[in-house]
Nucleic acid binder design. Structure first.
Lengths: 193, 193
DNA sequence: CTCAGTATGGAACGATCGTTCCACACACTT
DNA sequence: AAGTGTGTGGAACGATCGTTCCATACTGAG
């Protein structure tokens, strides 16, 4: 009878996720993953499959554990307007002084792989659609609660906020300047009153 | 006496630029560049230096030949409000039906390399600052011409438009859907009246 | 026509890539 | 206590990476 792995499969996938997240797919070698997880090459292959399969698993983990949980947590704990604001702040406040700003794993993948890799493209597109839906839901709820003016167009504004959020995320990686990023947040919020 | 190269240095750099632009730095090998330019390996190295130096040259070429010329052309031929609109449309209309949407070379590099490569980071940050300045200039000019309401805050809105533009560019690569991208343009323009 | 000297094309370098494979170690069953 | 079979660690695979080097081809000067 088998007797289970003696390493934490989820925790290891988490380390892999952070490696791909920070450096991207092509720039992260299997050797890097062996080093940063402490798990042997053979075990990685036996457990997760090849590099591409492992990347997809890491990306899906991010989508489930980070994006999905963040959105539902915001939706649960905040009013609609504040939930939108907090989503922006989550990325704004993730920038560190020591230059290791990872931004958003899904957005990084959107540029590096989505155009050439169908399975990555699907995950990324679905995730972006979910964020768009989140914004639309918050706007509609905000209108009902009179937090957001009735003249705001839900669909269009939700898409606009999605673009602003992605723009902020990109700038997080290339110009991690708090004042710049704060202006973007303020400008985004002005659209919903 | 030397007798000049017998290939077009600028035209070749242009092909290199498109290769890096489409696939990124890590995913483009020197062999790919040899193939797509038709120039031999040795000549590439003798003319442009190593891969990283060649990439920087290609990125600077993009910044000069594409970004800079586009902005000054828009500034010259259009009124301020229309110039802003046309900048967005330049990317919106670049999406093709056959999936080879390259987006913006500088934005691609912002995510792939800027956080880890200082020289790339400088070029990208400078370019983004130039676009931000372009927006601010157009907004101020628009206010003077009464094209743009006086209550619009120049600096903040310029930064907001920069984020929206970058967001649109990213979505160009991951969700090349004309209706989605058009909503983002409309939403962005609504901010300046 | 001859010589000088550079650009060319292709072979070849060591390093590293993703991946496979196998002998060994170990925990559970009998 | 012995046997069974899977997870582990590390060596090793061929391919490809970025880069270098050299014999050859070719253009201009003398």
């Amino acid at each position: 009878m088998p007797w289970g792995k003696n390493f934490d499969v989820e925790a290891t996938l988490d380390k892999v996720m952070h490696a791909f997240w920070t450096r991207g797919y092509e720039a992260t070698s299997m050797q890097d993953l062996v080093d940063c997880t402490g798990i042997n090459r053979g075990s990685l292959y036996a457990t997760y499959g090849d590099k591409h399969t492992l990347f997809i698993a890491a990306l899906e983990r991010y989508d489930n554990e980070m994006r999905r949980k963040l959105l539902s947590s915001l939706e649960e704990h905040y009013g609609p307007r504040e939930a939108i604001s907090q989503l922006f702040k989550a990325f704004l406040e993730s920038i560190s002084d020591k230059g290791n700003n990872r931004g958003c794993f899904l957005t990084n993948s959107a540029l590096e792989l989505a155009p050439h890799d169908r399975s990555v493209g699907k995950i990324v597109a679905h995730s972006q659609a979910q964020i768009e839906d989140f914004f639309a839901r918050m706007i509609n709820k905000g209108k009902k609660l009179d937090e957001i003016p009735a003249h705001v167009r839900s669909t269009e504004t939700a898409r606009g906020l999605l673009a602003s959020l992605i723009g902020l995320i990109v700038l997080t990686r290339s110009r991690p300047d708090r004042s710049l990023l704060h202006s973007i947040l303020d400008d985004a919020l002005r659209r919903i009153g």
